[in-house]
Design a protein around this nucleic acid. Structure first.
Length: 463
RNA sequence: GGCCCCAUCGUCUAGCGGUUAGGAUCCAUGGUUUUCAUCCAUGUUACAGGAGUUCAAUUCUCCUUGGGGUCACCA
């Protein structure tokens, strides 16, 4: 059974990069009929907040990524960590270190001055005398001082680290007794049965430390997949300063969850030439062996295209529901089908769709100057008057085709091109030169509103 | 700086020794449309550099260069 996890620390919103590794983990579990679990790493009381936890859960709910087990909170597991700290102490695999912070700082400065690697010098590793007064000790683990640590990584291949280069007896419990990250991660992953860890490759250099913990405790080491970072336009790790990195911002901007997920799954992963993936396809096709080794640059051009695609392919009922968040209420609008059919292929986001709806539904309060100049020339008003008269006289006007028929009559009777009626009519109805098909617009507005807008336009622009 | 990772169109990527280096996006042009958008065509643009291995390297090896990550009593 494959068990994967996503383990955010609740210091802020769910980040776009975090979401991608979460998605990969989720998909890989689903692909294998396994479990995807969520663990909140809330051990840093100073930086964590409950709001952040809620924000992360809200984002997961929006995207429909559900954890398969109850959420684990590290803050509730201190007893467990304490037990293992004691065990390592008893077994002589960890020890108390009485080096004060000042002493440690001095050591570090000296090493830096000598251009040496900064590492703990092992002063208390085999200490047997009387400990100094007034120092609350930290607990350090006895890490190997030589030899190789090999991370068998599913993305990068075998990565070899020399213990002497990267390891020292790192702290596993602070002076106040609280355990540190690399220690608890290993314990939690092991105890939660996590056997496939998919995470950002900024964790790759942490992995040897975690392996030290696994080995000291006799736990099985999971399979690791370190996925490359997502970079900003400057090629640096994506951070909060790089515009929209909060997942929920995308909801606010009018992106659909399926578009965002589809966009993210293709960032660093691919399946031949396929670009569009439904959730079912992702679950069936995702495999971490196809994850890229190189970082990708965050660029949302393709997200816009995907979002437009998913909007076009949404049902009108779904769109009515989604538009409620953008203050467009079409629930009982009798022409909503015509309206959405006409508009949904013109919008890149729900926000745009909402604004397009608003433009059609609302009587124009002003007319684009350029459009007026271009459209209301020659006998444009005469054409409009004739058209209005014809509309008045028509007996049944319901569908776009009915309105189209009236337009055809005018074109034939006055012996003009469609442009002669189309351009002025469009400006009259919408206030500008571009927009959806006029027959659809009129069907949406109905006869009365159409006539009203034509009269308004003539009144406002005939001078 | 030490250690580690990475390197194909602007961007996302395919490629797994022999290809006119493919797709997508973006951009441009044309067609469709009464307009705009959609849609459909077409086009511009890429193997970082240098050695080696090989009959043959984008592909394998090494070096250089460039980029990134990480080095806490943070996670």
């Amino acid at each position: 059974m494959v068990v994967t996890r996503f383990a955010p620390s609740p210091t802020g919103y769910l980040h776009i990069g975090g979401l991608r590794t979460a998605l990969f983990s989720y998909l890989w579990a689903k692909k294998n009929g396994g479990k995807f679990v969520l663990r909140i790493e809330d051990t840093d009381k100073a930086r964590n907040s409950n709001e952040a936890t809620q924000a992360i859960l809200e984002a997961f709910a929006w995207l429909g990524l559900e954890a398969d087990r109850e959420i684990t909170y590290q803050s509730k597991r201190s007893d467990i960590y304490a037990k293992y700290i004691k065990q390592l102490l008893d077994e002589g695999k960890a020890y108390k270190c009485y080096m004060s912070r000042e002493e440690l700082d001095t050591l570090r400065e000296t090493q830096m001055a000598n251009k040496e690697r900064t590492k703990y010098n092992g002063k208390y590793r085999d200490f047997e005398g009387t400990p100094p007064e007034g120092v609350e000790p930290v607990i350090r683990i006895k890490a190997p001082i030589s030899g190789e640590i090999i991370v068998h990584d599913g993305v990068k291949g075998d990565v070899v680290f020399q213990a002497e280069d990267i390891l020292d007896d790192f702290v596993i419990a602070r002076a106040d007794g609280s355990p540190t990250y690399n220690f608890v991660v290993a314990i939690d992953d092991a105890l939660m049965g996590i056997n496939e860890v998919i995470r950002g490759d900024d964790h790759l250099s942490n992995t040897p430390k975690q392996i030290v913990v696994y080995e000291a405790l006799g736990f099985d080491i999971p399979k690791f997949y370190h996925v490359p970072m997502i970079h900003n336009q400057q090629g640096k790790k994506l951070s909060k300063r790089d515009g929209a990195t909060d997942v929920m911002e995308y909801k606010a901007m009018g992106y659909l969850p399926e578009a965002l997920l589809n966009f993210l799954v293709r960032l660093g992963w691919s399946h031949g030439d396929q670009e569009i993936f439904s959730m079912d396809e992702m679950k069936a096709l995702f495999d971490p062996k196809d994850i890229n080794k190189s970082a990708s640059i965050y660029n949302t051009e393709k997200l816009d295209w995907l979002n437009a695609h998913y909007i076009k392919n949404s049902s009108n009922d779904e769109l009515v529901e989604l538009l409620l968040d953008f203050d467009i209420v079409l629930t009982s609008h009798d022409k909503k089908e015509i309206l959405l059919d006409a508009l949904k292929e013109r919008a890149k986001t729900l926000k745009e769709l909402a604004s397009l709806c608003h433009e059609v539904i609302t009587t124009p309060s002003e007319y684009d100057a350029k459009a007026v100049k271009k459209a209301f020339k020659g006998n444009a008003f005469e054409v409009l008057e004739n058209f209005a008269a014809k509309l008045n006289a028509a007996d049944s006007l319901h569908l776009p085709a009915d309105y189209h028929h009236v337009m055809e009559e005018i074109v034939n009777e006055m012996e003009i091109g469609f442009g002669k009626i189309g351009n002025p009519l469009r400006v009259a109805l919408l206030g500008k030169m571009s927009g959806p098909g006029l027959d659809a617009v009129m069907a949406i507005l109905g006869r009365d509103e159409t006539l009203l807008r034509i009269q308004n336009a003539i009144k406002a622009n005939a001078n």
